[in-house]
């Protein structure tokens, strides 16, 4: 049944997921792979003794983690017998998930079991999971502080970017006066402004808001204005013959038509804002995920540094996924046209 798909040239052209992972692995075995890999990892974790060089943890946290993963995998597999969607997804992702657990096992051997790497900088997985679990109250606080800084700064910058971009796109005089400013100020990485903002703003927090906003503002402005100037003139003309005036030219034609560009700008801005967020926190903040990582580094507590990094990666990838979801919804009209 599966080999049919891989030999079908049309399927090969349209559905990439049908080509990979290779079909030599049977459908059911693919779905079993994560469980096998987790069991293997558990076996390694519990049966091989730890190297004495690695400090002990209160509990075998990585074992708990693996048990949790095992439970999730079993649930997924059970579900996959009843739900077509889960079945397809698991058959596709199974190999990858298994790969992840094999990689974790490799790390486990290198750090915890053999202590081949310096234990100070490369803590065991037990210690990393322990850091996240035992320091959870502070981590949650830091995530909330970062989220506040990110969201407030981000939306201010986004709004400002949309406004200046629209002004440049539609008004000749705005374009004359603002574009050179954007061109000069925009390319400067917003973190460069840190020394200036520290004296110009009443608090480190307001300075951080400004820096994050600045990071989003520039790409959003540039892409909004370039999006608007790339809207085919025919759309505005068609609008005019349907009775549209200036207001509608901007809000019902210009901005919707440049949404693909605008989202590209927002995406770039989001990435820039993450960099700025973490840097700003490292410099002048109390609490926040960037501050946490630097603070733990200064304390020489590398397990907490890794814990912080894992939390940061998770947080940012959730935010980016949300943005992609929003984009897919807003750009539904050009599905199959643009991919990025």
């Amino acid at each position: 049944m599966t080999s049919d798909i891989s030999f079908n040239p049309q399927g090969a052209a349209t559905l990439q997921s049908d080509n990979y992972p290779p079909r030599s692995l049977s459908f059911v075995r693919n779905r079993m792979l994560p469980i096998i890999a987790v069991l293997l990892a558990l076996l390694l974790q519990t049966q091989i003794p730890k190297a004495p060089a690695q400090p002990k943890t209160l509990h075998p946290y990585f074992t708990y983690f693996l048990l949790l993963a095992l439970a999730l995998c079993v649930v997924q597999l059970t579900l996959s017998f009843f739900r077509e969607k889960t079945r397809r997804k698991l058959a596709y992702k199974g190999l990858f998930v298994a790969g992840v657990f094999l990689f974790l096992s490799l790390l486990n051997i290198l750090t915890s079991k053999l202590a081949l790497l310096p234990p100070l900088y490369f803590p065991s997985l037990d210690r990393i999971v322990a850091a996240i679990v035992e320091d959870r109250a502070l981590l949650v606080k830091c995530v909330l502080y970062s989220l506040r800084l990110q969201l407030v700064g981000y939306f201010c910058g986004l709004l400002a970017g949309l406004i200046t971009g629209t002004l440049i796109g539609f008004s000749k005089s705005a374009s004359y006066w603002i574009s050179p400013l954007v061109r000069v100020l925009g390319p400067i990485p917003s973190t460069t402004w840190i020394p200036l903002t520290l004296i110009a703003f009443p608090s480190a927090l307001s300075a951080s808001f400004f820096l994050v906003a600045l990071a989003v503002w520039f790409p959003t402005t540039i892409m909004t204005s370039s999006g608007i100037s790339n809207v085919p003139q025919t759309y505005f003309e068609a609008g005019s013959t349907l009775g549209a005036r200036r207001f509608s030219h901007i809000f019902r034609i210009g901005l919707p038509a440049s949404m693909p560009h605008i989202f590209l700008g927002i995406f770039n801005g989001t990435c820039a804002s993450f960099i700025t967020l973490v840097t700003a926190e490292m410099v002048g903040a109390r609490y926040g995920i960037g501050w946490y990582v630097i603070w733990q580094k200064d304390m020489m507590s590398y397990s907490n540094v890794y814990g912080g990094l894992i939390i940061t990666a998770t947080l940012f990838s959730i935010l980016i996924s949300l943005l992609f979801k929003l984009r897919d919804k807003a750009l539904l009209w050009q599905k199959d046209v643009v991919k990025w």
Binding site: P232, T234, Y235, E237, A238, S240, T241, L242, G243, I253, P256, A257, M259, W333, Q334
Partner: peptide, 19 residues
Amino acid sequence: GPGSDRGFVFQEHALFPWL
């Protein structure tokens, strides 16, 4: 100036692709 009392049909339809 343009107005809705004169409809205009363009060669390349000019429908708004986002609607």
